[in-house]
Amino acid sequence: MTLRLRAEVSLAEAEDGGGVLLDERSGEYWQLNPSGLTTLKLRLAGADEATIAETLLAGAQDGTGDVAQAVADIRELVAQLADAGLVVGG
């Protein structure tokens, strides 16, 4: 099942490369840092965790981070998005 934003949730990209999520149902709004936005967009497009992890690590450009840690971080972010009621599926 593909991850998707709830119908009442809007996503806007910020100038710093991050994103803002607005939940019109609860009135809450949230901020994603640039790697968070990359993770969400790729996840919404159906990319798997390994692909997203490689993308995040490639963006680091200095060899910092490792795939296992990146995958764990991706899972943590998706869980936070689900707990906040911003996404369904996945």
Partner: peptide, 13 residues
């Protein structure tokens, strides 16, 4: 490497 993060900014009426 930058860990992906989600931060609640607030809420509105």
């Amino acid at each position: 490497y930058s860990k992906p993060t989600l931060l609640k900014l607030g809420s509105f009426e």
